[in-house]
Amino acid sequence: MAMIGTGYRYDRGKVTVALRNLSYNFNGRGDSSLDMRMTGFAAGVTFPF
């Protein structure tokens, strides 16, 4: 799993943007195997109160 991102802090909150990657390698019996990768963006906003 890997994640990289950046954020910015304002007077009233924070904004965060990130790119994440999650990879799996399943090895089964015989010839069965599965390689899977999930990649996507994540965004968040935080408001303190």
Rank of each mutant, 00 (worst) to 15 (best):
M1D: 14
A2R: 13
A2Y: 13
M3P: 06
I4M: 13
I4C: 08
G5S: 08
G5M: 09
G5L: 09
G5H: 07
T6P: 01
T6E: 09
T6I: 15
T6K: 12
T6M: 14
G7R: 01
G7K: 02
G7V: 01
Y8V: 08
Y8K: 05
Y10Q: 07
Y10W: 13
D11I: 09
D11C: 03
R12W: 12
R12G: 11
G13R: 05
G13M: 04
G13L: 02
K14T: 10
K14Q: 12
K14Y: 06
V15R: 07
V15Y: 06
V15A: 14
V15E: 06
V15K: 06
V17M: 11
V17W: 04
V17R: 03
A18N: 07
A18Y: 05
A18S: 13
L19M: 09
R20Y: 09
R20I: 04
R20E: 09
R20P: 00
N21S: 11
N21T: 08
L22N: 10
S23I: 05
S23D: 11
Y24D: 12
Y24L: 09
N25V: 05
N25K: 09
N25F: 01
F26R: 09
N27L: 10
N27M: 08
G28I: 04
G28H: 03
R29G: 15
R29N: 15
R29P: 15
G30Y: 06
D31W: 08
D31F: 11
D31C: 05
S32D: 15
S32G: 12
S32Q: 14
S33L: 05
S33Q: 11
S33I: 03
L34W: 12
L34I: 14
L34E: 12
L34T: 14
D35S: 15
D35T: 15
D35F: 11
M36G: 09
R37K: 15
R37C: 03
M38L: 15
G40R: 04
G40A: 02
G40M: 03
F41Q: 01
F41W: 06
A42T: 04
A42I: 02
A42G: 04
A43Q: 00
A43Y: 01
G44F: 04
G44H: 02
G44Q: 04
G44C: 02
G44T: 00
G44W: 03
V45P: 00
V45T: 03
T46Y: 08
F47N: 00
F47A: 04
F47V: 06
P48M: 00
F49Y: 11
F49R: 08
